[in-house]
């Protein structure tokens, strides 16, 4: 039906799309792993970051990749503030409430963006948006190759932060045993907010990688966030390497499903995997424990 070359290209494309899914899922899984909450505002926050990239490009003429540098601390601060001053206090430390507060936040953010930018679809153009890397007979999109590389580097960095720094150790301590961490003098609300901030910082990177080839409108985050949920569940909630592997895996599955079933029905593949994993092995394929 399709030549092996096409199938190989589709798989590689999927792998590279999956890298961006992985980045988005990384933030989600980190927040889940530590705070044990599902952040429904993740998609809306991604949209915010994408608009920030677009604005920096449109107003200041900044290169989208360069925007990542200032955007990472900005998104970190936004995430920190949101958790510290909104999500944390509003939810009184209850899981169900957090779900609802983040849902409310996502509705507010999405519609504030709508009020500010209208529902216009916006795109940006760079010299390298259309560039390809020729790998033998295969033409690979240059921005996506970069995306794959950056995603792997960011995952590595995040892993290093969690395992080699004091803050990282504190985060892991809180994730494992909140009460105990509190007893040994760790400022738990601060660590929560730091984690939320790190999750949002991942979104800044993802936004910078997406914008050269993708578009943004106030509702675009939703298109990614359901996939990110799937990735998180597949990789094991809270698992950093799981998010990377899960993201890459989902990217390839989606791409091949799309090739054979059509992009429209190909989406169903993702949700069926999602449901099946939840029903059969809620700890995820790569997760070691609940």
């Amino acid at each position: 039906m399709y030549s092996p070359q096409i199938i190989l290209e589709a798989a590689l494309n999927g792998l590279m799309t999956g890298a961006v899914y992985a980045l988005i899922a990384l933030g989600l899984t980190l927040i889940y792993g530590v705070l044990h909450i599902i952040n429904f505002a993740h998609g809306a926050l991604l949209t915010c970051a994408m608009f920030a990239v677009w604005l920096a490009w449109a107003w200041l003429g900044m290169d989208p990749y360069l925007v990542i540098v200032p955007l990472v601390p900005l998104m970190f601060a936004l995430g920190y503030g949101l958790q510290r001053f909104v999500v944390g206090p509003a939810s009184h430390g209850d899981d169900g409430n957090i779900l609802l507060v983040t849902l409310g936040l996502s509705i507010v953010l999405e519609n504030v963006l709508l009020a500010l930018f209208q529902s216009d679809t916006r795109t940006l153009d760079t010299d390298y948006s259309f560039q390809v890397v020729a790998l033998g007979p295969l033409l690979l999109s240059y921005p996506r190759v970069i995306g794959l590389g950056v995603a792997i580097v960011v995952t590595g960095l995040l892993w290093l932060v969690l395992n080699r720094t004091d803050t990282g150790k504190a985060i892991r301590a809180v994730a494992k045993e909140k009460l105990g961490a509190n007893l040994v003098g760790i400022d738990v609300p601060h660590i929560y907010a730091v984690t939320f901030g790190l999750g949002c910082a991942c979104l800044a990177v993802a936004a910078g990688l997406l914008m050269p080839t993708f578009y943004v409108n106030p509702r675009i985050g939703g298109a990614f966030v359901l996939v990110a949920f799937t990735v998180v569940v597949l990789g094991g909630m809270g698992s950093i390497p799981g998010a990377l592997l899960g993201g890459l895996f989902i990217g390839v599955v989606e791409s091949l499903c799309g090739l054979f079933l059509g992009d429209s029905l190909g989406q169903i593949g993702i949700f069926l995997i999602f449901i099946a994993v939840l029903l059969v092995r809620p700890t995820g394929l790569f997760g070691a424990k609940a």
Binding site: A10, S255, G262, D263
Partner: peptide
């Protein structure tokens, strides 16, 4: 005939199929 959802995250596959 190739169908895709709105919003679509990726058009690479559609393009690949057109190319083939």
């Amino acid at each position: 005939t190739i169908a895709h959802p709105t919003p679509a995250r990726d058009m690479s596959n559609v393009a690949l199929r057109i190319r083939s």
